[in-house]
């Protein structure tokens, strides 16, 4: 069943785009800089006004409260930003032992120390920020992942770790993923279908 369905979506110069991603499937999107990949993700995440509809499990986005939509359809931005002083303040665990356990496991999988939660944001490297932003997103337990170059500023080893974690999360929760990348080899590794976004329209490669 289609977990994420996009129907005639258009925003700015992008679209109309129609696309469905089934449970547990991953679609990668390639395209030159400026082709509108990020704009497309922003419209799906309902950050920008747009035409057309986006459905999660058959339910249109406007039937969700906006914060709920953002939690269910999680967008990971290419440049992660932080608004509290320390890392830990960005992670709302709500005393959930299961999620605390998940977080500690994910931290070690991404080669991050547990202690990092008490670090001030200024102490983080770009790579650490990118990996932590992924964990911040996963803590909301989204049903759909919209990933905007999640490994853009990572070295090869950490790219591998991020890919493995995302694929593991996808397998365990049957998540639908839309993955933007510039790296065709990465697209081939992670995706079931690869699309190309050119001049505002999407084509299957």
């Amino acid at each position: 069943m289609a977990q994420l369905a996009i129907e005639s979506l258009s925003t700015h110069h992008v679209g109309p785009i129609s696309l469905t991603i089934d449970e547990g499937q991953c679609a990668a999107i390639l395209g030159q800089s400026g082709s509108g990949k990020t704009l497309m993700l922003r419209a799906i995440a309902d950050l920008d006004p747009h035409k057309g509809d986006v459905f999660l499990d058959g339910k249109p986005s406007d039937r969700f409260q906006p914060p709920q939509w953002h939690k269910e359809v999680g967008l990971l931005c290419a440049k992660p930003l932080w608004w509290h002083d320390t890392v830990g303040e960005h992670f709302t665990l709500a005393n959930d032992p299961q999620m605390e356990h998940c977080l500690s496991q994910w931290l070690s999988q991404l080669n991050l120390v547990n202690d990092i939660m008490s670090w001030p944001i200024q102490r983080l490297s770009t790579g650490e920020q990118q990996r932590l932003a992924l964990l911040r997103l996963l803590m909301n337990q989204p049903k759909v992942l919209l990933l905007d170059e999640p490994s853009a500023s990572l070295d090869e080893k950490n790219t591998d770790r991020v890919e493995v974690l995302i694929k593991q999360y996808q397998r365990e929760r049957q998540t639908a993923i839309l993955w933007i990348t510039h790296d065709i080899k990465q697209a081939q590794r992670v995706a079931d279908h690869i699309y190309n976004l050119e001049q505002g329209s999407l084509t299957l490669t």
Partner: peptide, 20 residues
Amino acid sequence: REVIEQRLLSGETASQALNT
């Protein structure tokens, strides 16, 4: 603006994202 949008994306309401 980008910080506010990422706060929204993390599941905050507009009011929470603008609070500070």
